[in-house]
Nucleic acid binder design. Structure first.
Length: 605
DNA sequence: CCACCAGAGCTC
DNA sequence: AGCTCTGGTGGC
């Protein structure tokens, strides 16, 4: 009697076992019964039935085999298996984000070419690092690197950059290359089928392109490898850069890690060094203690607007260039506090401190997105005096509007992503004679399209990240990017307003990333933080489950930390993933479905 | 009488 | 988390 182990997408980690009359080759898709319904899974292996092991549940037969050949070419399947283990998400969850829905949702057959024979030339793969602030310089090197390569993947943190790089390729190369779509749907399906079946030379795209089913891969480039864009923000939580590195190793492909700044892990492993630093006159630090205290309606805190900010803004505007003011707080105020009892207004769903959106007369929870109307009184003490703290973009906007000259607009961009191409053109056209743009870090991408002569980080200390340990690097790399990004970086001035101007991580801005990482890594080594260990963020499904998980980890002689604040979260630091996976595996068995599955994020650097 | 929807129940 | 089955509601 034969059985198949099938990977069926879902939050569980284990493969599911089904009976089969005849052996099914690994990598083929099969339709299988699950619960009351039917699902599609990928065969991991066919083996003899092990009566003891399979006795705990009744085996059901496979409903049908959907493919003639393995659906994933080359070593891609191994990548999914590895990623599922490394990021504690299970192969199935990774499959879900890696494949178009046409493959996993519909039993329609997908036409597939047979796998390629192993005609791969076993060149010795290289691992190269390339760090330079000049994008043109890096891109030129990419073209050199791809010379003579027969199957390549080039990854960019943003789709727009990918499109630009692809568009700049020599026509002959572009014709044998595909621009990987950034979103799912029909376009992804089409691209997937083309790449899977046609003899293409390469794929260029955003992070998702790492999963392109190229049959032969001999080179992978990761641009801006330290960018946070390579981390997925919904389940499963994985680092695409790491997967790209693994894919290169699996396929024996050469790997080029590149960017303006290396990530901590790459810095450490590559023993990198750099003397690149900004010109003295292009970076300024200003203390907000001496700030001009602009009073803003309904806001208790004064907005940090320094004299340096006003003078540089004025200079830039009068030269007809555009000014960018950046602040990572949307809305009118980052917090609403009661003057009587001092407590902040919190989200009723998740307990986080809410943001005040004055324009729409409501509050928004920054962590769960819950919207509510602005409260009349303090929910804690019923006091009537609610004031905003930590002014946000909406509150500063009137100040910016007062500074622009005739014919220069002041724009408030809440959400650059939602604006699309047409809006982008409107923005760039409107700013042909300069103006002020206010936005969050996402607005930095405007450097690619606008002549930006001055960038101000209004509150460089603000760290609104969920994981505090890497907040310094996030801020550092964004500020670093703002110095160099785009064709208008020459002569640009960047201003950092903060409480401790020029100290701490800001020294690295003046001295370069080698100095930054040296300092930062000595602190992290001390605290056993990534890249010196892995950090696991485990979110239990219920309080009971949390207790069980804690007990299981402690039983395996690990030291989980219970921060107490987000109530269901557990933190764990470990030098290896394996024992953590073993301790957590019981909670990810399909048999536990009814109790709900925990969520896990693995921080590697 | 059936179309539609929310909630329950199940998962190798 | 999906997915389907169920039973109530309401439109005609």
């Amino acid at each position: 009697m034969l059985c198949c182990e099938v990977v069926v997408p879902g939050p569980w980690w284990n493969g599911l076992t089904y009976s089969t009359d005849s052996p099914v080759a690994p990598g083929l898709r099969v339709a299988v019964p699950l619960g009351r319904g039917e699902r599609i899974g990928i065969v991991r292996e066919t083996r003899d039935l092990n009566e003891d092991k399979e006795a705990q549940f009744t085996l059901r037969p496979i409903k049908g085999v959907l493919d003639e050949y393995p659906i994933f070419p080359g070593r891609l399947w191994e990548l999914f298996e590895w990623g599922g283990r490394a990021f504690l998400c299970g192969t199935g969850e990774l499959l879900r984000i890696a494949s178009p829905s046409s493959i996993l949702d519909s039993t329609e057959p997908v036409s597939l070419m047979p796998p390629m024979d192993d005609l791969q030339v076993a060149l010795t793969p290289e691992e190269l690092f390339l760090y330079s602030c000049r994008q043109e310089e890096r891109w030129l090197k990419y073209t050199d690197f791809l010379e003579g390569k027969r199957g390549f993947i080039v990854l960019f943190p943003e789709q727009e950059l990918a499109r630009k790089f692809w568009g700049d390729l020599p026509k002959a190369v572009r014709n044998e290359t595909i621009l990987w779509p950034s979103q799912g749907g029909k376009r992804l399906s089409a691209a997937w089928n083309t790449v899977r079946n046609e003899p293409l030379r390469g794929v260029v795209g955003g992070p998702g392109a790492v999963f392109a089913p190229l049959r032969y891969v001999d080179a992978i480039i990761v641009d801006e490898e330290s960018s946070g864009a390579y981390r997925t923000y919904t389940k499963p939580l994985v680092n695409i850069r790491t997967l790209a590195g693994k894919r290169a190793r699996l396929e024996s492909a050469s790997l080029l890690l590149s960017g303006r700044v290396p990530s901590s892990r790459v810095f450490l492993r590559g023993r990198l060094n750099s003397s690149e630093r900004p010109k003295r006159e292009s970076i300024r630090f200003a203390g907000i203690k001496e700030a001009f205290a602009a009073s803003l309606r309904g806001i208790g805190d004064s907005m940090p607007l320094t004299s340096a900010l006003f003078s540089e803004t004025g200079l830039c505007l009068s030269s007809g260039r555009t000014v960018l003011w950046l602040l990572d707080r949307k809305g009118y105020a980052g917090e609403i506090a009661c003057e009587d009892c001092g407590s902040a207004v919190r989200c009723r769903k998740c307990g986080a401190s809410v943001v005040w959106e004055e324009k729409r007369g409501r509050t928004r929870c920054p962590s769960c997105g819950e919207l509510r109307s602005m409260p009349e009184e303090c929910p804690a003490c019923r006091g009537r005096l609610l004031t905003g703290k930590r002014p946000g973009l909406e509150a500063v906007f009137p100040v910016a509007r007062g500074l622009v000259n005739e014919g220069q607009p002041a724009l408030l961009l809440d959400d650059l992503k939602a604006t699309g191409k047409r809006r982008l053109r409107e923005i760039t056209d409107g700013l042909s004679r300069g103006g002020i743009v206010l936005g969050t870090r996402a607005a930095l991408s405007l450097c690619d399209n606008l002549d930006i002569g001055f960038i101000a980080w209004l509150d460089a200390d603000a760290e609104v990240r969920s994981v505090a340990y890497q907040a310094k690097f996030t801020v550092f790399s964004m500020v670093w990017e703002s110095i160099w990004r785009g064709g208008s970086a020459d002569g640009r001035v960047v201003l950092l307003q903060s409480r401790r101007p020029g100290s701490g991580w800001q020294r690295g801005v003046a001295q370069g990333w080698s100095a930054f990482w040296k300092q930062e890594l000595s602190e992290r080594r001390e605290l056993e933080l990534p890249p010196f260990s892995y950090l696991f963020e485990i979110k239990a499904h219920s309080a009971e489950q949390k207790a069980e998980i804690l007990a299981s980890l402690e039983g395996a002689r690990m030291n989980p930390m219970d921060p107490g604040d987000p109530p269901l979260v557990i933190w764990l630091s470990a030098t290896s993933v394996v024992p953590v996976r073993e301790a957590l595996a019981p909670f990810f068995s399909i048999a536990r479905s009814r109790r709900g599955f925990p969520g896990i994020c693995v921080w590697i650097d």
